[in-house]
Amino acid sequence: MLAVFVTLLVLLTAYLLNNTASRTEAIYRGYRNSVMISFIAFSLWLAFDHWFIPGSWWTISGSTLLAVICLTLGAMAINILLYRWYMGGSDYPGLVQAGVVSDGCPYNGPYAIPKNFVTHGGATLWEEIIFRGVIGLGLYFIFGPIVSIVVTSVFFGLLHYLPFRAYAKHNSIKPDRYVLGAFISPSLFPAAFMAVNLFYGSLIPGWIMHWGLNCSVGLYLRYILPAISNKGAEKEYVG
């Protein structure tokens, strides 16, 4: 019950934050709607998990939680290094201007980091329930773990990559490393989400890892990349 209570608290907080902000800026409406979809999916999942799925897939022990947090921090570090490689061949300002990408951090100003953190928690939940829950566990119980991991990761990667690639092509943006990254990260890491979920017998580990990885993208694009760019510009100016 504690896991359910915490999940509902995250969803409620994320909804209130983005519902208030959506009155002034349209960008928050998408996050608010994602949180609403997450709440509906979570409510249905609790019933589905109780009546149809063997075992309880929305529980987690304290030791497992600590292990998953450590895994998440490691995955976040790897993802930041990958994004440094992705951005090495990209005109990021051009991608932003074309509307292909955003930095994943809608909030600015006071308490921006915790607001963005909670927002990602609420917005990512429905994806985990659908892809690693309904689809992933369905494949697992029918075909086994390997098929479940491979199919869900490739499917999830393509769903991120194909629209991204089409948008980039429409805006005459070269298929450079950043566009390729739209398939690499959404395939590589969800494979880990599914594997960890199956190992621990819970969907919560994958949600935490997905949550952290989305935050790592925002941290890199909003804070780390500008700092690196400014430092490089200063060196070039001094030189």
Rank of each mutant, 00 (worst) to 15 (best):
V10N: 08
V10T: 10
L11V: 09
L12K: 07
A14G: 12
Y15M: 03
A21F: 10
S22W: 03
T24H: 13
E25D: 14
A26M: 10
A26G: 14
Y28E: 12
Y28H: 15
R32C: 10
N33Y: 08
V35Q: 08
M36E: 11
S38P: 13
F39L: 13
F42V: 03
W45H: 04
H50G: 13
W51D: 07
F52N: 01
I53A: 02
I53T: 09
G55Q: 10
G55D: 06
S56W: 09
W57T: 01
W58H: 01
S63D: 07
T64S: 12
L65Q: 07
L66S: 13
A67E: 13
I69A: 11
C70G: 14
G74W: 01
A75Y: 09
M76T: 10
N79R: 08
I80A: 02
L82H: 11
L82T: 03
R84G: 02
W85Q: 03
G89Y: 08
G94E: 06
V96E: 12
Q97E: 15
V100T: 12
V101A: 12
S102Q: 15
P106K: 10
Y111S: 14
K115Q: 13
N116K: 14
F117K: 03
V118G: 05
H120F: 10
G121Y: 04
E127H: 05
E128R: 00
I129C: 05
I129L: 06
I130G: 03
F131M: 05
G133V: 02
V134P: 10
V147P: 09
S148A: 15
I149M: 07
V150G: 10
V154N: 14
F155M: 09
F156E: 02
L158C: 12
L159D: 01
Y161S: 03
R165C: 05
A166Y: 11
S172R: 15
K174V: 10
K174C: 07
D176Q: 15
A182R: 04
L188W: 01
L188A: 04
P190V: 04
P190Q: 13
A191H: 00
A191T: 00
A192M: 01
A192S: 06
N197P: 15
G201V: 02
G201Y: 02
S202C: 14
W211S: 06
S229Q: 13
K231C: 03
